[in-house]
Design a protein around this nucleic acid. Structure first.
Lengths: 248, 248
DNA sequence: GGGCGCGTTGCACTGAGTGCCATACGTCTT
DNA sequence: AAGACGTATGGCACTCAGTGCAACGCGCCC
């Protein structure tokens, strides 16, 4: 079995071998029933090398997470055009696209994390870093707004929840559904709630669109969210509504 | 020293002693620098007993979490009156009240979890169970609605994020702020976004209040959220608004 | 050829967590 | 009163994750 110049992988042949060996064993005999020694024996490498590539046994289940997080962070840092909520939703779409690049792998991991409590907990800490990055981005964009950090935290949590909802339903369908459509639908709900001008509660957003029109990427199914005190007089509510819609 | 009948604690004197010893050591020399042997030596008990009361070293940092989660779950199962979003917000208020019962302890724990990555990760798995319980409750209440599980997941995430935002800012202030007011403000934002009748998108909610009034415990600062397609005719929007307000 | 950097490996060690059994104490039974 | 029994605790040995350290092999450059 010559493996010399057949498929010259750029950097880490050993890393991939460890991931492959780990998943084989995890799937056939379970995560907790598999020791690191089992993995390195199957991969034919030394035990010490495992911990050189993966700081913990759990990390081998999320081998490209650091890269994925770095990509998302770079995307957020890449520019501030578009509206902030739109941008974090796009960041979430980016993450889902990375999952969708390896459907088989993503499904296997999903089955693992669903069954093993320890892996579920670890996945939470992974997801938390994404959410934290989104919240951090929104906090910067929301500086000066009333309740800026609160809104940032809540919106980031909502985006992550919507993303995960779509991702899980896609994974449960064995990747037969359209992942992009699912996440668009889920994030559309979040964008409809928090995105756009939301004039009455964030009037300063209006200044960015002096023409009073919906702004970039206006689709016919866009929605407007109006928040008003319940005891406000109806005429006042309608007035706010007209200004939010840019009519009247 | 005679400790026979001086302070006859009901159930677990040993458990509390372990918690006290653990926090003393964690605070004075750090979490990772403290071994379980150190804790049991200071508490004067056998090492095996530690793991009888706490399944892991991390659990000693959240000693009453199981009870707190059970209380919240019981509260949710206790009744389905009020509007669902209102109810999960009240559940979050319940949790914050438990934190507020031991301000000093909560602050110490906050300082610990903030600095120790392992504890932060563990706290995430703790918080996740709360969020999951809220989402589960909302899913049941939202069965039949379009995107019921999506809305349930997103709202649960938003509630938890708002709760945590208020909790953290309260803990950072050394418990000098008013925790109740902070969480009311944060959850008010979520309730303003998702709560109440939200007539246009959830008309079935109207049936529960045939009188058309806001329902129980209507406060003057309650708000109504109206979601509508941006391209809808204005008269239609106003019609929906009137029905949402129970006027017209 | 000999030094040098790097990736790999083996080895010993710490510490978390578990299973098993022995012990002590209170209670219930005969 | 003596013994049986359940429960709480302690002690011991073991597995396994993770780390520090010191070799070893290997290509490379001087």
């Amino acid at each position: 079995m010559s493996s010399s110049s057949a498929a010259p992988v750029a950097k880490p042949p050993m890393r991939d071998a460890l991931v492959a060996a780990a998943f084989r064993l995890f799937l056939e005999r379970g995560y907790e029933q598999t020791t690191v020694d089992d993995i390195v024996t199957l991969a034919g490498v030394g035990r010490r090398s495992f911990f050189r590539y993966f700081p913990s046994k759990e990390d081998v289940v999320f081998p490209d997470h650091e890269r994925c997080l770095a990509d998302m962070t770079a995307f957020l840092a890449g520019g501030a055009e578009h509206e902030p909520v739109r941008r974090v939703c796009d960041a979430a779409r980016l993450v889902l696209r990375m999952y969708a690049e390896n459907p088989a792998f993503s499904v296997q991991r999903y089955r693992l994390t669903k069954r093993v409590p320890g892996l579920r907990a670890y996945e939470l800490s992974v997801v938390w870093r994404y959410e934290h990055a989104l919240a951090e981005y929104l906090r910067e964009r929301f500086t000066g707004r009333p309740d800026g950090t609160l809104r940032a935290d809540v919106i980031a949590a909502a985006v992550v929840a919507a993303h995960n909802n779509a991702l899980r339903s896609w994974l449960r369908s064995d990747c037969e559904d359209d992942a992009g459509a699912a996440v668009d639908h889920a994030l559309g709900y979040v964008q409809a709630t928090y995105g756009h001008g939301v004039a009455p509660t964030a009037p300063e957003e209006q200044k960015k669109r002096p023409d009073g029109r919906p702004g970039p990427s206006a689709r016919p199914d866009e929605v407007v969210v109006l928040v008003s005190r319940r005891d406000a007089p109806l005429w006042r509510v309608v007035q706010e509504l007209e200004s939010a819609l840019g009519r009247g």
